[in-house]
Design a protein around this nucleic acid. Sequence first.
DNA 1: AATGAATGAGAATTCATTCAT
DNA 2: TATGAATGAATTCTCATTCAT
Lengths: 211, 211, 211, 211
Amino acid sequence: MDQPDIGPSQGGRGEEQETRERILAAASQLMAKKGYKGATTRKISQLAGVNEVTIFRHFKNKEAILEELLKGIVDIRQQLENDLHGDFSELKQMLLRYARGYYQMLVERKEILMICMIEADNHPEVIKLFSSLPMTAVEVLSNKLQEFQDQGHLPKGDACAAALMFVSTFFYSFMAKYRVNLSLNFQEEQLFEDATNILMNGITGNTHSHR
Amino acid sequence: MDQPDIGPSQGGRGEEQETRERILAAASQLMAKKGYKGATTRKISQLAGVNEVTIFRHFKNKEAILEELLKGIVDIRQQLENDLHGDFSELKQMLLRYARGYYQMLVERKEILMICMIEADNHPEVIKLFSSLPMTAVEVLSNKLQEFQDQGHLPKGDACAAALMFVSTFFYSFMAKYRVNLSLNFQEEQLFEDATNILMNGITGNTHSHR
Amino acid sequence: MDQPDIGPSQGGRGEEQETRERILAAASQLMAKKGYKGATTRKISQLAGVNEVTIFRHFKNKEAILEELLKGIVDIRQQLENDLHGDFSELKQMLLRYARGYYQMLVERKEILMICMIEADNHPEVIKLFSSLPMTAVEVLSNKLQEFQDQGHLPKGDACAAALMFVSTFFYSFMAKYRVNLSLNFQEEQLFEDATNILMNGITGNTHSHR
Amino acid sequence: MDQPDIGPSQGGRGEEQETRERILAAASQLMAKKGYKGATTRKISQLAGVNEVTIFRHFKNKEAILEELLKGIVDIRQQLENDLHGDFSELKQMLLRYARGYYQMLVERKEILMICMIEADNHPEVIKLFSSLPMTAVEVLSNKLQEFQDQGHLPKGDACAAALMFVSTFFYSFMAKYRVNLSLNFQEEQLFEDATNILMNGITGNTHSHR
DNA sequence: AATGAATGAGAATTCATTCAT
DNA sequence: TATGAATGAATTCTCATTCAT
């Protein structure tokens, strides 16, 4: 009664495996909004447009739905590293690609990420999956910057902090937009460029001190 | 069974208000970990060391506990602005102060922030409160940077993006530490300095281009 | 998962009736162990190695399976009486035959008997069927003993009590072995002989008193 | 709607611990008739005249009710042995006492015994408790008879079989009456005396053979 | 004739909340 | 003021059974 069906079953033909997908989509959507407990099987079934019991024909129990959704987070290291391919002369383009790629990845997984964020303390298996995306992103970028530092292209310094700043920016924007529904008065593309410029300046500058 | 009392009342006089505080503290702690629904009145009462019904002598219902907790988020604009007091020559010190002050504020409010994060979609009144802290922080810093740009101290540009990057960094670290229990291999103080340096370089550099 | 198929159909022709038997066998086995409710159609189908729905092609509903099983209890009076054929000089041999025959009959019907025992109060039609075996056994023996008493071969007395004792002994042993899985430290054959001896002594003795 | 309340709550005073007892009584009664699964918490609560949820304030879960009921079966060896106190001259009186005592014990525990009988295969802890009563009864009597045999009062022989016959008789009668609601055309007292006489004759007779 | 998908009725259990003391 | 007992509403899940293929 809150929301209409999630998908068009509209008939009775050819929705064989579709039911399972509808359930997953409904659960994902609801859990991302209401949390695991808030996404009751009744609400899931209503949103999916199926009978409540049908859920249990497709999944052993409610927890199994979550586990299935969690499989949607796969390791993204390789993909991120691809965006950083190139030598120092291309750093700026690489950073831009990286920003876009990372942000897009967050958006594509926004529901499962929200679920992880919400359920971090309730479902132990969630934590490691949850940390993988943001932390991997910091690591991959940090490693690349470190490499350039080692090659003398960048002044020695805080590659890790720089990577963290860069990644944080997009994660934060993502959270603001999709969790808090907050318009940051930012066009994403604009943010990618601005942040890239600031970071480029920040790490190629010459006024570093400490350590 | 899981956790001991949050603090025994160990006396006998004037516990009226103390009981209320114990309930609030227990609820805050549990909701921050388990969410609103996960923090059952039974668990709250056990952690608070009071009878379950006692909760309802102090609060109309469970929702009222949350509302009370939300009052704990007050506007922090004034305090943040104080940390940015000074002229351009002190910018670096200002940024460091700002970073420390902002991060400390997050930590001091970590439970209620987690609750807001978790319940953003369930309790409408949460959203505006929740957005206040991070967004205010961006705004305040952005305004100050803009001011310096207007005064010619900083090249025209992306004050808002810069502020966002700076603030994001600490919010992200805060989330990683307190939500995901992820050690970022960062000492906070080190991060404050590194991020400040990078930002200083980033915004005072001379290679800006973008529109 | 618990038990393998009750028997593969290993062929392809004429399994129609066989499927039905497999279902009956599985249901009998499960109901004897777990009771009517504990024998779910799913478990029955798994043990029978058929699809759950197939059950309902062969039986109107689950209750009909039980009814079919109950038909397996037929009157045994004739058979029991056959074991008691003979004159008084053969009493001991007759008793031995009777014991063996009765016990064997119990064992052959152990599953349906257990079902009756378990479901006595749930399925009204069960009770009369259930009582038929043990009570008939007492009656038939009692009649025979009475006959001998009337002929003067046995002292007047408690033919019915004697028959009850005799029959009880084997029913009790049967229950202990097949319901409680209790080894009574008895070989059945030994028990048949011992009980026969005791009964023979008991009813041919000369020290009777009671009214 | 099937049965009225089990006990007179009729007011609201002084039924503090009584509620628990009412639930236990209702559960015992229903489980003895319908089995564990057949005794739904709803039916129990209705028969007990309490709200369904109240059951779970008094018992962790349904299984805990059964466990509590099972505690009602305590070791009866001592009591049975008391009934067999005396020397050989009193054997007949002892047997009578024993029959009465054993039968009374069965009747007093009739509900829990029926539950055990029904659930023997479903609840593993039931089996050992269940076997204790009947087997102990056989053992105790068998030991006493053996003792008399060793003292030369009784001919060497099948004390165990004799004990089994005796005990079986009453257990069988008990089952017939309380499980199958079958009138055996027996007054219990008459059966005690008849069975005692037959056993006395049976074991003191002189026509034993084998071993 | 057999099966995979779907479902209504009902099961045990949890939870926030009220009542009486 | 605080508490133990009680409860209605809702939740996850099971089961027998039907439908369409």
